[in-house]
C-alpha cells in the first residue's frame, strides 16, 4: 500500500496546504473584511477545469490502488511474469502521437486557427482508436500464446489494468466524439475550445498513466 499512500499523501498534502493557506491568519468573526474584493470563487479558472482536476485525482486514486494491489499480489509464490507482446510498443507510440496531436490542436484552438482544429482533432481521435484496437490485438496475441486470464495473477492483472485504462480512454473518446461532430458540422473553434483544452489535459494524463503501467508491466 506504500504506492497508494505516496500518491494519496501528495494529493491530501496539496489539499491540506491549500486549505490552510486559504484559512490561516483569517479572522472570520470580523465583519468588516472587504466584501467588495472578496469574490466567491476560489480559483480564477473555469468550473469545468476545476471539476476535471478533481476527477483526475479520483482516477489517480483508482490507478494507484490497482498498482498497490499489483505490487502486493506479485510477492506471492504463484506469480509467473508475463512476456508482454511487442505490439505494446507500437500502441504506446500511437498514444504518444495522439497526445501530441491533441496538444497541437489545443494550440490551434487557443489561437483561433479554425483550419487546423478539424484535422488535428481527427488525427488525435484516429490515433487513439488505433491505440485501443492495438490493445485488443495484444489481448488476442496473449490468448493465442496461452496466457489466459485465469491462469495466473500476472495475466489477470495485465488484462485488468489494460481494460481499466482502455475504459478511461473510451470515456475520453466520448467527449472527443462530441467536439469532433461539432467541428465537422461547421462550428467554429471557439465553441469547442474548452473541450479541446480539457481533453488535452485528460489525454496527457492517460498517457502518463499508461507509461507508468507499461513500465511496471515490463519490469515485473
Amino acid at each position: 500500500m506504500y504506492i497508494t499512500l505516496i500518491f494519496l499523501g501528495i494529493i491530501m498534502a496539496t489539499v491540506i496546504v491549500w486549505l490552510l493557506r486559504q484559512t490561516f491568519n483569517t479572522q472570520p468573526w470580523i465583519s468588516e473584511a472587504a466584501d467588495n474584493e472578496v469574490s466567491g470563487a476560489s480559483m480564477d479558472t473555469n468550473t469545468k477545469a476545476v471539476a476535471l482536476t478533481v476527477f483526475l485525482a479520483v482516477a489517480t486514486s483508482v490507478f494507484a490502488l490497482f498498482i498497490s494491489a499489483y505490487t502486493i499480489r506479485m510477492e506471492e509464490p504463484d506469480w509467473r511474469p508475463i512476456t508482454e507482446p511487442t505490439l505494446l510498443w507500437a500502441n504506446t507510440l500511437m498514444l504518444i502521437l495522439a497526445s501530441i496531436a491533441y496538444h497541437w490542436t489545443r494550440g490551434a484552438a487557443v489561437k483561433g486557427i479554425d483550419s487546423r482544429v478539424k484535422p488535428g482533432l481527427t488525427v488525435a481521435g484516429v490515433l487513439t482508436v488505433l491505440f485501443l484496437i492495438g490493445q485488443l490485438v495484444a489481448w488476442q496475441q496473449l490468448n493465442a500464446a496461452g496466457y489466459y486470464l485465469d491462469l495466473n495473477p500476472a495475466n489477470a492483472f495485465f488484462f485488468l489494468l489494460t481494460a481499466v485504462h482502455g475504459l478511461h480512454m473510451l470515456g475520453g473518446l466520448w467527449v472527443w466524439a462530441r467536439s469532433t461532430m461539432k467541428v465537422w458540422t461547421g462550428a467554429d473553434s471557439d465553441s469547442v475550445r474548452l473541450s479541446i483544452e480539457l481533453c488535452t489535459v485528460y489525454w496527457h494524463f492517460l498517457l502518463l498513466v499508461w507509461i507508468v503501467l507499461f513500465g511496471m508491466l515490463l519490469s515485473t
Binding site: 486559504q22 473584511a33 466567491g40 470563487a41 476560489s42 468550473t47 476545476v50 478533481v54
Partner: peptide, 16 residues
C-alpha cells in the same frame, strides 16, 4: 467539491 470551490456568492470566503 466544485460548487464549494467555485460557486459561492460574493463575500462568502471559505472561512465564512
Amino acid at each position: 467539491v466544485t460548487t464549494v470551490l467555485q460557486a459561492r456568492c460574493k463575500g462568502m470566503t471559505l472561512m465564512r
